[in-house]
Design a protein around this nucleic acid. Structure first.
Length: 297
DNA sequence: AGCGGTCAAGTTGAT
DNA sequence: ATCAACTTGACCGCT
């Protein structure tokens, strides 16, 4: 069975997640800031619940939660704790209700922190802040029943082998509640599946295989072979990514298309049991379209 | 009501 | 040395 996943937001369904910036928060007084944040975080917890309901009602088996669900959470000056906000305990309860809904309805939830989270950096402070960001993700993941916090390998700094050794060492030092959820994804500029699989084997962290990135940044291995290697790293339902490039299909990596061209879905995935996150600008419309195109209805 | 400038953070590679 | 691209909005604040 193939479970298709929706990434973060909706195209036409009126479910919106709110955001803010550190700059704006710092322009507010202490009381105003706490009230503003409580309102925003409460809104996002409610929006997440509605997002999961939409997925359950429409046969979408997975939902990627935007890392900004609690925006600016780990910022050095503007960061905050929910339990210090007015009504913060009820906001946490609301997130836990999302987790219960996820469990009861079999909707998988995941996170994909953005490019600023880098565990391979030679700069200790970058790694320290990245780990702090992972702690935030793991905390929310525990509430909402997310079993994947998916990151890229980061930079190469002119020496991939050394950077990958740093990456593995940092992963091995992470707390279990992070490490048990962490996944590594091949990217389109630096780290291929062939680069990451050894780190996955060493650390027990699974590989999220992004086939579009693999086509942009090949490593000499076929899709079939890479699929097998990726599957072998998983101790739970595997998670892969698909997207279609916006313009012509050859040449360097292009931005995402509105929809998925079903020809980009490889034959060798047809009979697997896994989650496939759909990275397409038309969001839920693209997920539902791909379901039809693959006869998964 | 509509629109434009802005937004925490890292790294790479084009200029 | 500088800066856009990653992804891509959503927000505030001004008109």
């Amino acid at each position: 069975m193939i479970r298709l996943g929706l990434c973060c937001i909706f195209k036409s369904e009126p479910i919106k997640f709110r955001r803010t910036t550190a700059k704006y928060l710092l322009s507010l007084g202490q009381r105003g800031r706490a009230a503003f944040l409580a309102d925003l975080c409460r809104h996002n917890a409610d929006a997440l619940y509605r997002a999961l309901q939409f997925c359950a009602a429409n046969g979408i088996g997975a939902f990627r939660i935007n890392s900004q669900i609690l925006p600016v959470k780990t910022h050095p000056e503007a960061g905050y704790d929910l339990d210090r906000l007015p009504g913060g305990d009820r906001i946490v309860e609301r997130f836990k209700t999302c987790g219960a809904f996820s469990r009861e309805n079999g909707i998988r939830t995941t996170f994909h922190p953005d490019q600023f989270l880098v565990l391979s950096s030679p700069k200790a402070d970058v790694v320290r802040r990245s780990v702090a960001d992972l702690e935030y993700h793991a905390m929310v993941a525990g509430w909402v029943n997310a079993d994947a916090i998916n990151i890229h390998g980061g930079g190469a700094y002119g020496d991939k082998a050394t950077a990958l050794r740093r990456l593995a060492a940092v992963i091995e030092g992470l707390d279990r509640d992070i490490r048990d959820r962490l996944t590594l994804e091949n990217d389109d500029r630096v780290y291929t599946p062939a680069d990451l699989v050894p780190v996955c084997r060493q650390t027990g962290v699974p590989l999220v295989y992004d086939i579009h990135h693999h086509r942009c940044l090949p490593d000499g291995n076929s899709v079939e072979r890479t699929t097998e290697a990726a599957l072998s790293t998983w101790n739970r339902e595997p998670l892969f990514h698909i997207s279609s490039p916006l313009n012509n299909k050859t040449g360097p990596c292009r931005p995402h298309h509105d929809f998925i061209d079903p020809r980009d879905f490889p034959d060798c995935w047809r009979d697997l049991d896994f989650t496939l996150e759909v990275e397409a600008k038309a969001k839920e419309l693209a997920v539902l379209q791909l379901k039809r195109d693959l006869n998964l209805l």
